[in-house]
Every structure is written in structure tokens, then in C-alpha cells.
Design a protein around this nucleic acid. Sequence first.
DNA 1: CATAGGCGGTTCAATTTCGAACCATCTTAC
DNA 2: GTAAGATGGTTCGAAATTGAACCGCCTATG
Lengths: 157, 157
Amino acid sequence: MSAGDFESRWLSPGANAVWTQFLTVTHRLEQQIDRRLQDHHGISHTQYEILVRLADAEGHRLRMSELADRIVTAKSAVTYQVRKLADMGLVDPHKCERDNRATWVTLTETGRERLEAAAPCILSLVRKVFLDAIDCEQASQLAELLATWSGNLDDIT
Amino acid sequence: MSAGDFESRWLSPGANAVWTQFLTVTHRLEQQIDRRLQDHHGISHTQYEILVRLADAEGHRLRMSELADRIVTAKSAVTYQVRKLADMGLVDPHKCERDNRATWVTLTETGRERLEAAAPCILSLVRKVFLDAIDCEQASQLAELLATWSGNLDDIT
DNA sequence: CATAGGCGGTTCAATTTCGAACCATCTTAC
DNA sequence: GTAAGATGGTTCGAAATTGAACCGCCTATG
């Protein structure tokens, strides 16, 4: 690494610091969420996210592919986790009548209760660490930033 | 969920959107990085991060625990990955003389070359998606935000 | 209709990760 | 000096994730 190629080959010290800390913070955040859920509620963050997405969805149900898209994981991982959640009775997978290939996953009453039990634990963490750090102005800036990042990711693929 | 407890039990729609998109964007970013490294350079993101941290460190070496702290994973995962990297010849683990329990991990010349080969691929992605989206002003704001989040995470633990 | 290709999901093997238990060494306090 | 506890790493088994191969259904095109 020679002196002048900060711009081309490597990141500037400042940019590098931001990027590194971004990675660190996101990992630590995930770690904390996972540990809290695992310790106090017996579900993983992935499982929790599935419950959340279902609760937010129209009719509290989603198809497998849609679920995979929303939580950003491989379809096979969704198959695996939905089976586990179904075994726990938190979720009810059933065939779609319109399309015999597809399966709907519906949040059960038990699932909703379990989610409501777990949510405060996570939301208080999210608030304390993530949200309380930003005022309304910053929040909208962050939202804009996230939208840009998301758009850039779309373009790249 | 009754009408008035947006503040207590659930997040406000805006806050929820920001948080959800934060999760989505970080996952997609990780996914892209991983796929690029895997496809074009035959290493995982974790392995890449290990190489980066070693390259940044004094004397291009770190101890196992320090490595685990910096990349934010379990120590056993570091043991596993360092062994793999050592098998590839990218890294050289050796006993510490001062403390017989400890092991230093040093970046080898081959490791440095491999890192330099892989870095542009990742850095251009990071720039295109993440860094080019923010100007200097926003960058320092983001840095500040990340520092706050990081501090909040410290407090919680 | 037929059939070719696309789509929704699952299965499977391989890889990675985690946490708990463990070993060895170092350090502190007596 | 030596016992007690802390610290640095590894091992082990369980769980999660991935991508590729696959199966069956759906749908367009002729």
C-alpha cells in the first residue's frame, strides 16, 4: 500500500472507521437480541422475526417465499424454522387452495401470545440502544439513508 | 393491542419501519459481501474479517481472544476459522512465549496477498452501496450515531 | 391440448456457529 | 510455596444456515 491510493485501493481512515464500527455494532446488536430471546423466551431471533412478519401481515399469514424474502434468508432455512415453530404450535402451515405448490403460514393464537410475551423484551432493547439515540430529525435522515442503501443494493443485484 | 399503547408496548409505525429496514439492509449487505467473497475469492466474510483485523493490527498479529472480540463471535468459532485459514496458509498461529496459554495469530505473506486480492471487490461494494450514499457531513453524523449505539450496548451488558 | 419452462417448496450434505464443559496456565493472597 | 480463582483456548455436541438438486404444479406458447 503506497501513499496516495487511499482513494482507490483502501478506504480512508475515517470511512474505514465508520464501516468497521457499523459491522461491529450490527453484530453486537444481533448478538444481544439473540441472547435475550434465547435466555428469556426460548426462541431464536430468526424465529422471532418470522412471528413478527406474520403478525404484521394481512390476515396474519404469509407464504414461504415471501417470508424468506422478508427475513432475508435462504428458502431452506425458512422451511426448517417454520417446521420448528409449527412443532411448538406457534404457527400453522397449510396448503394454498389456489396454487397447490404454495403453502400459507398462519400465526396461531398461541404464536401471537408468545410474540406478545417476547416483544417487550426486544423492543425495550431496541429502544434503549437504537431508537432513543436519535431524535425525530435524525430518524428521518436515517430512514432516508436506509432507503438509499436499500436502493443501491437493488441496483447491484 | 389497543389504541394508545404505541408508546409502551409496540413501536410507532415510523420507528418500526426504520428498525425493520435496518435489519433488512444489514442482512442484505452481509449476504452480498459473503456471496462475492465466496464466489470470487473462496473465503467467507468471517475469514475475510479475520484477515482484515490482522492486517490492521500492530505487527500484523493478534491473540485469539482479541480476534474474537473484534469480529464479535464466539471464541470457538475463531478457533475453527483460524485453523482453516492456517490450513490455507493465510495465517500462522503460534504459542506466545510470555504466556503459555495464549496463541498469537500472524498474517502470513500469502495471507496479505490474498487479502489484497479480495479487498477491492468488497471495498467497491461497500463504497457503492454504503459510503457513496453519504456526504462528509452525514458521515460524521453517522459516526456519532454509531458511537452512541456502541456506548449504549456497553451499558446494557 | 401438449409440452417447455418457470415457480414454490422441500430435501440433503456440507459448513458454520454457539455455548458449555473442560484443560492448562497464570496470578493473587495467604 | 501453595491453594483458589481468573484467564486463554480448545473440544464437543447440538442447532442453524446455505446452495444445489430435486419434485410437483402452474402457465404460456404453439
